[in-house]
């Protein structure tokens, strides 16, 4: 068994006076892929944002350790420097800042903190980025476009994966990376995540999703079902299969959305 990378114990999170996460435990070891599945509003993004240190997301109880450090008081950039990465459910546009310039600035910021790995990454940065973009089927012209500015939903998701591949974190938190993607885009994006995992055998992923379909590509070792801020069930990949076949109702959860999403997707855009 690998080393414990992320250890969450009895976590409670408050956002604007509401306790959204109410006693959550989760342990992710090196090299593991975990899926956290839950209906809309169950607290998936809240968990992701809190792990990344978003202002306004307050930990009222419990502990969060990442790579041996208590990260509760750390700034978002310190967490990124420690090796955490969040692929945003809704990536933010930064007008006037090109994708290329942003990636270079982020790499420079990460390597400044003395992590020797980033010196290596920077050496082959240009060549690698080209290769990653090709793999993600991103037009090379995008390097000169302003980050996420006017990008379609699918383009934004690929951009997050491009960052993941470039920045090579230890733990990738993927918040609904699959939502809004059609079959082909989903495949491309999943391949990107797999490539990152293959390149970094000790790296782990926390795949947050509403639907099961991305898990066909990114085989999780563990699946957790989140409902109303608590993990109500944990197990192996079979949990995701059960969810697909029987829906959230099988777990006693009211889901406002229609049952399992048909392959192909109802939100199909790229």
């Amino acid at each position: 068994m690998g080393k414990e990378l992320l250890k969450i114990e009895n976590l409670h999170i408050r956002v604007e006076e509401n306790e959204i996460i109410q006693g959550l435990d989760l342990t992710v070891r090196e090299g593991e892929v975990h899926a956290v599945m839950g209906p809309n509003g169950s607290g998936k993004s809240t968990l992701a944002y809190t792990l990344m240190g978003r202002p306004g997301y307050e930990i009222t109880k419990g502990s969060v350790c990442f790579d041996g450090q208590d990260i509760r008081e750390m700034e978002p950039e310190e967490r990124a420097q420690a090796g955490l990465f969040l692929s945003f459910q809704y990536p933010i546009a930064i007008p006037g800042v090109t994708v290329g310039h942003f990636l270079m600035t982020a790499l420079a910021a990460l390597s400044e903190k003395g992590n020797g790995r980033y010196k290596e990454i920077r050496k082959t940065f240009r060549k690698d980025i080209k290769k990653y973009m090709e793999g993600l089927k991103i037009d090379p012209a995008f390097a000169q476009r302003y980050l996420n500015d006017g990008f379609s939903g699918g383009e934004k998701k690929r951009m997050e994966i491009l960052q993941l591949l470039t920045l090579q974190p230890k733990l990738a938190i993927m918040d609904e990376t699959d939502s809004g993607l059609d079959i082909d885009a989903l495949k491309v994006v999943s391949q990107g995540v797999s490539e990152y995992l293959v390149q970094n055998p000790k790296a782990s992923a926390l795949v947050i999703t509403h639907y099961q379909r991305i898990l066909n590509h990114l085989k999780p070792h563990f699946v957790h079902i989140l409902s109303k801020g608590k993990i109500i069930s944990s197990g192996g990949p079979e949990l995701a299969i059960k969810l697909e076949n029987e829906g959230y109702r099988a777990f006693g959860i009211e889901d406002r959305e229609p049952g399992p999403q048909p392959e192909g997707g109802i939100h199909g855009t790229t």
Binding site: M52, G53, R54, P55, E75, P76, E77, R79, A80, Q81, F85, L86, F88, P91, I92, A93, I94, F102, T105, A106, A109, L110, Q163, L167
Partner: peptide, 14 residues
């Protein structure tokens, strides 16, 4: 603020 958090989460300090 959203842009700020987005950039910081990717490793840039304030």
């Amino acid at each position: 603020r959203e842009q700020m958090f987005y950039l910081r989460s990717k490793g840039l300090d304030k």
